[in-house]
C-alpha cells in the first residue's frame, strides 16, 4: 500500500511481478496484461445494470416513449374531440381515466401530453447540451481573461432564479405570438444550460492540467485536437449525467409554466394544462388531477432514477 493513501485496491493487488536488475527487455511477465479487457463504457454499463432502480427507470422511459408515439394513434378518441353529453365521467372501461368538463377522453389526453413532455425534455436537453458544452468548453480551454468574463456572466445569471427568467422569456415570446410549444423550447433551452456550462468548464479545467493533455501538447497536437480528442471525451461521463438530469427539470418547467397558464394551452393537452384544469375541479372530480399528476411524477422518477444510476456509474465524484 506504499505510496497510496486510502484502501483502494487496483485489479491484481499484488506487487508488479518481474525480476530485478538488470531488467529484462522481453521477460514473460511484461507481456501479461493485468486487467479484464474492458473499456470505460462497458464497465459503466455493467455497473448501471447492477443498479435496479436505474434499470427500472430506463424501462419506464422506453415504455413512455412507446406510449407517446403509439398511444394517441391507436386510441379511438382524439385529444380534442368533445362529447358534451358525457362530461365529467368517472373512470370506466370506455374511458379508463374518465372524461373532462367537455367530455374529452382523459386517457387520450394524458397520452398526448406525454408527447409534449418528452419532446420538451429532449429538445431542451439538446439545446442545453449544445450551448452548455460549447460555452463551458471555450471558457475553460482559453482560460484567463476570456474565462473570467464568461464565468462572471454565468455568475450573474445564477444570481437570478432560473424560473423567473423562464417566466419572463415566456411572457415576452407569448405576447409576440410565438407558437406556445416553440416558446417553451426557446425559454427553457436558453436558460437551463448554466449548470452544464459550469460542469463542463470545471471538468475541462482539471483535465487540461492532467498529464495526458500535456503529453498531447508535447507531441504537437493542435488545440482543436486536444479539446475534441482528449478533453471532451474524458468529460463525457459528467456531461451525460447532466443531460439526463436536465430532461426532468425541463419537463417539470414546462408543466409548471402550463400550470400557471403560460405554456401551451387548451385544446392542446400538456400534462401541466391537464393538472391545472383538474385542480379547478379538485373537490368534485379528484381523478381529473390524479392521472396527469401521476404521469408527471412517474416520468420525473424514471429520469431521476436513470440519472442517479448513471451518475454513480459514470462519475462517482460528481454528487449533489
Amino acid at each position: 500500500m506504499a505510496g497510496q493513501t486510502g484502501w483502494q485496491f487496483k485489479d491484481g493487488a499484488g506487487p508488479d511481478a518481474g525480476s530485478f536488475a538488470p531488467a529484462p527487455r522481453d521477460s514473460a511477465e511484461l507481456q501479461q496484461v493485468a486487467g479484464q479487457p474492458t473499456t470505460y463504457w462497458s464497465d459503466a454499463i455493467r455497473r448501471i445494470r447492477r443498479n435496479k432502480l436505474a434499470v427500472v427507470g430506463f424501462w419506464i422511459i422506453i415504455a413512455l416513449l412507446v406510449v407517446a408515439i403509439v398511444g394517441p394513434m391507436v386510441s379511438p378518441y382524439s385529444y380534442e374531440d368533445q362529447d358534451l353529453e358525457n362530461t365529467f365521467q368517472s373512470p370506466t372501461l370506455r374511458h379508463p381515466f374518465g372524461t373532462d368538463q367537455l367530455g374529452r377522453d382523459q386517457l387520450t389526453r394524458v397520452m398526448y401530453g406525454s408527447r409534449i413532455s418528452l419532446a420538451v425534455g429532449i429538445v431542451c436537453a439538446a439545446l442545453n447540451f449544445l450551448i452548455g458544452v460549447t460555452y463551458g468548453g471555450i471558457a475553460a480551454y482559453f482560460g484567463g481573461r476570456v474565462d473570467d468574463i464568461m464565468m462572471r456572466i454565468v455568475d450573474i445569471l445564477y444570481g437570478i432564479p432560473t424560473l423567473i427568467i423562464v417566466i419572463l422569456l415566456t411572457v415576452l415570446f407569448k405576447d409576440r405570438g410565438v407558437n406556445p410549444l416553440v416558446n417553451v423550447f426557446i425559454a427553457i433551452g436558453l436558460t437551463y444550460w448554466l449548470p452544464m456550462a459550469r460542469i463542463v468548464r470545471g471538468e475541462i479545467l482539471s483535465l487540461k492540467e492532467r498529464e495526458f493533455a500535456l503529453a498531447a501538447k508535447t507531441i504537437g497536437a493542435t488545440n482543436n485536437r486536444i479539446l475534441f480528442r482528449h478533453l471532451i471525451p474524458n468529460a463525457m461521463g459528467p456531461i451525460i449525467v447532466t443531460v439526463t438530469l436536465e430532461i426532468p427539470s425541463a419537463i417539470f418547467t414546462e408543466a409548471f409554466l402550463s400550470y400557471i397558464g403560460l405554456g401551451v394551452s387548451a385544446p392542446v393537452a400538456s400534462w401541466g394544462v391537464l393538472a391545472s384544469d383538474g385542480t379547478q375541479a379538485i373537490r368534485s372530480y379528484p381523478y381529473l388531477v390524479l392521472f396527469p399528476a401521476l404521469a408527471i411524477s412517474l416520468t420525473m422518477f424514471a429520469f431521476n432514477f436513470l440519472g442517479d444510476g448513471l451518475r454513480d456509474a459514470l462519475d462517482p465524484r460528481l454528487r449533489q
Binding site: 470505460y40 492532467r210 498529464e211 495526458f212 500535456l214 503529453a215 498531447a216 508535447t218 507531441i219 504537437g220 480528442r229 482528449h230 471525451p233 474524458n234 463525457m236
Partner: peptide, 17 residues
Amino acid sequence: SKLQMIFQDPYASLNPR
C-alpha cells in the same frame, strides 16, 4: 517531434479513453 517528454504519473499521462 524531435523533443519529447516522459511524464511522472503513468496513470495520468495516458488518455484513458
